[in-house]
């Protein structure tokens, strides 16, 4: 119990450190939100107007006071209001986060559906045509940046064949079929890269497990090959694959920005980039904080699960 509380405590401190670093970093970067807001049309605003807006946004207060107010708000669960349109930051995050999670989730499912069987097959037929072809394709998928993959998909399926829309978003409840069709290309773009990772991990893991003593024993017992594969090999090979996928999913939380841009998918990453461009301090701090909490939470969960599964971790 003490061990678990210690882990939770460390996670909270980690989140506070992240919030502080982000707050200081965004304030230290050149660019003034008031100046930017009033200079959008290509001509700098009247200095009096900029000073007035700075006052309205609270930017004329000492940075420590601003920091204190920001942290106090976070402790109350208040992420503040956007400097761009005065709307609550939490509302925008609540709306955008599920979309990014959906994109990542769909990409992960695609990656597992393709990568796991392909990796298994490649391991079983090690050195064969399929193994060599699939390994080459996986290397290619890993090497090609997502914005190239995404742009190619748009070019072929949206602009040339006109099978799908080039991008955009429609809520699932509004039009389920269109929602899924709009989800297809961005999730495929994410899924292809991830599938290559899964393929490599699965291939390596299957090769490793297939050489273990208990597999040889199972074979010696005369079990059917399919039975050995599904019950003994793949099941045990899944563990490292799932661990790697989970780690990748965490990093994708803030890393889908290029995919969101190419497909105009209004997710959390795009919101973060827009907020940074506008030097919208509360939005930047709020979004990164939420991503950090999710990331730290995910790690905490894994830590706690390790503890449950392996007593050596608890007492170590």
């Amino acid at each position: 119990m003490i061990w678990a509380l210690k882990r939770v405590g460390i996670s909270l401190v980690l989140v506070w450190i992240v919030a502080t670093i982000v707050f200081l970093a965004i304030h230290l970067v050149p660019g003034d939100p008031a100046e930017l807001l009033l200079s959008q049309g290509g001509v700098a605003a009247d200095p009096g107007a900029v000073a007035e807006l700075r006052g309205q946004l609270g930017l004329d207060r000492p940075i420590l006071v601003q920091y204190g107010q920001s942290m106090a708000g976070l402790l109350r669960g208040d992420l503040g209001r956007s400097m761009q349109d005065d709307s609550p930051v939490a509302d925008a995050i609540t709306r955008r986060l599920p979309r990014t999670l959906e994109l990542i989730g769909a990409g992960a499912i695609l990656a597992l559906l393709v990568g796991m069987p392909a990796g298994t097959l490649a391991a079983i037929r090690r050195g064969g045509v399929f193994d060599r072809t699939a390994s080459w394709l996986a290397a290619l998928a890993l090497a090609v940046p997502v914005f190239v993959t995404g742009t190619l998909l748009v070019l072929v399926f949206a602009q040339s064949l006109r099978w799908v829309a080039a991008g955009g978003y429609v809520a699932l409840a509004e039009d389920p079929a269109r929602h899924l069709s709009l989800l297809a290309m961005p999730s495929l773009t994410i899924g292809l890269g991830l599938a290559a990772v899964v393929f490599r991990m699965a291939r390596a893991a299957v090769l490793d497990v297939a050489g273990r003593d208990y597999v040889r024993t199972a074979r010696a017992k005369g079990l059917r090959p399919r039975h050995i594969l599904t019950r003994h090999v793949v099941r045990n090979a899944l563990m490292p694959v799932v661990t790697v996928v989970a780690l990748h999913l965490g990093s994708l939380l803030g890393g889908t920005v290029l995919v969101e841009y190419v497909f105009n998918w209004p997710g959390l990453s795009g919101l973060l980039v827009d907020a940074v461009s506008a030097r919208d301090y509360p939005s930047v701090v709020g979004i990164i904080l939420v991503i950090s909490v999710l990331f730290v939470g995910l790690n905490l969960l894994v830590d706690l699960l390790y503890g449950v599964l392996d007593p050596r971790v608890r007492h170590g």
Partner: peptide
């Protein structure tokens, strides 16, 4: 210990067709 290549390719193609079918409604 054989996992059919045909089965693998068929399942992948099915997934792609599903996506294409949905996309036409776009």
């Amino acid at each position: 210990m054989r996992l059919s290549r045909r089965a693998f390719l068929a399942s992948t193609a099915a997934a792609a067709t599903l996506g294409s079918g949905l996309s036409r409604q776009a």
